[in-house]
Every structure is written in C-alpha cells, then in structure tokens.
C-alpha cells in the first residue's frame, strides 16, 4: 500500500497534471470511497423502489376502474416527458419545503426527508414510470389462452397471476428492464444538482480543491461508471440466461 502511494506521489512530481491525489491522501481517498458507496446505495435503493413502483403501476393499469387507469397513465406520461433533472429540483425544492421537520438534538430543525431521500423518491418515480410500461407489455405478452388453461384447471385469478402470468411476464420484460435500470444508474449522477454527495459530487469538490487532480479524477469517474454499468449489465444478463426456458425464444 505504502509503495503504491509513493509511486503516485512520485508521479505527480514528474507529471504535475496527473495528480492521483486520492491514491495517497487519506482525506481525498475517503471522499472518493464515500462517493462511490453513496452512488451504489442510491442506485440500489432506486432500482428497488422503481421496480416496486413498476409492479404496482402495472397491476393498477389492469384495473377495471377507468379513473385508476387514467391516473396511472397520467403519472407515466408526466414522468416520461419531463426532464428527470427538473423533477429532482421540483421534488427537493418545491415539495421539500412542505415536509415536516424534526429536531434530533433539540437545536437544529432537520426535515424528515433529506436530499438523499428526495433523490431516491424522485429517481424511483422517474424510472418507475418506464418500468410500469415495461411490465405491462410483459403481462400483455402472456397469451389469453394460457391464462384460460390455468383457469380451466381451477386456478384462482391470484394463483394464475402468481404462478403463470408473472413468471412469464418477468422473462419477457427482462431485456427492456435491463436497459432502463442501466439508464437509472446513469441518471443518479443528476442528484449532484441537489448536493447529494455521490461520486460525481465528491469528484467535483476534489478537482475544485486540487485542479491538478482534474484529469485523474475524471478518468476515475469514467471508469467507475463503466464498471458499475458493466456489473449491472452482466448480472442482468446472467439472470436472463438463468431464466431462459429451453425451447423458447425467451
């Protein structure tokens, strides 16, 4: 470890524009690591909630009540056709002012939803809008005759959904879901706009404090996102392969 740090210390002396400061200075290293960790947490939380929103939305879209369907449709169209960045600002600044506050130490008033909380809410709703349509398309891809076969075997509506329609719909949805989730991970950078201390935010503070660290830190950000997206794509592809049914295109 010490040798690696020494190497980068030497590097910056030889090439002043390539200051990999976070390789030898603990404070900057801490920033980078906490930024990466925040990006991962943010991504995982948003992935989770956006999928939940997608499932609930797809379920509600199949409702017999026209008003429920209209509300879901309105939600989808609004979040799909407005910029996610402005959504973030709207959630955090415009809606954030109405959130109640609490006082953890009796001195400071802290809103119960932090900027990280708002980022998770906003980005989950954004990606969730796409997920609703993806899941809906998956459900509709299950032929009516397969449902009928299940009901003629005495399956209840809930059983038909749980054991037949849902497992098949998930398989149909996976490729599109994969795409959307990759997009979501990339969109988490926009939480920068409300000062969520994720990787991009931390990197910007580093290269503002140490302009010599600009190029190395940019490179780092690039590499980390490529790796994160790569891991997600590979695990999703692995899941897709695992779910593949022999003898079917799915």
């Amino acid at each position: 470890m010490y040798l690696i740090a020494e190497f980068f210390r030497q590097l910056v002396e030889d090439y002043p524009r390539w200051n990999f400061i976070w390789m030898y200075e603990p404070v900057q290293q801490e920033k980078v690591l906490s930024g990466i960790w925040m990006t991962i947490q943010l991504s995982v939380a948003c992935l989770f909630f956006s999928v939940i929103i997608g499932i609930i939305g797809a379920f509600l879209q199949g409702s017999r009540n026209a008003i429920v369907r209209m509300v879901v449709q309105g939600y989808i169209q609004f979040f799909r056709n407005t910029p996610p960045y402005v959504q973030l600002l709207f959630f955090y600044f415009a809606l954030g002012q109405f959130t109640p506050t609490y006082s953890p130490d009796g001195w400071l008033e802290v809103p119960i939803i932090s900027n990280v909380g708002w980022a998770i809410i906003s980005l989950s709703f954004f990606a969730g809008a796409f997920n609703v349509e993806i899941f809906r398309a998956g459900i509709e891809a299950v032929p009516e005759s397969t449902r009928e076969a299940a009901s003629s075997l005495g399956f209840s509506r809930a059983q038909t959904f749980r054991y037949i329609v849902f497992p098949l719909a998930v398989r149909v949805s996976l490729p599109a879901l994969n795409n959307n989730l990759v997009n979501l991970v990339k969109t988490t950078t926009q939480a920068f706009g409300i000062a969520v201390p994720e990787l991009l935010y931390q990197s910007v503070t580093i290269w503002n404090d140490y302009p010599s660290a600009l190029y190395p830190t940019m490179l780092l950000v690039f590499v980390v996102y490529i790796v994160l997206v790569g891991v997600l794509v590979m695990s999703m592809n692995g899941w897709e392969r695992q779910m593949r049914i022999p003898g079917y295109g799915l």
Binding site: V182, K186, T187, T188, T189, Q190, F192, L200, V204, W207, L214, Y215, M218, V221, F222, Y225, I226, V229, G230
Partner: peptide, 18 residues
C-alpha cells in the same frame, strides 16, 4: 460504447473542463 454507457452529466463536466 464509451459514450453510450457514460452518464450525460459526467460527459458534460468533462467537456466543460477539458
């Protein structure tokens, strides 16, 4: 692949600063 898989905001920053 590089520009398809990088976040837009990161690309914007890099272009602005570089």
């Amino acid at each position: 692949q590089l520009f398809r898989n990088s976040p837009w905001l990161v690309i914007l920053f890099i272009v602005l600063l570089a």
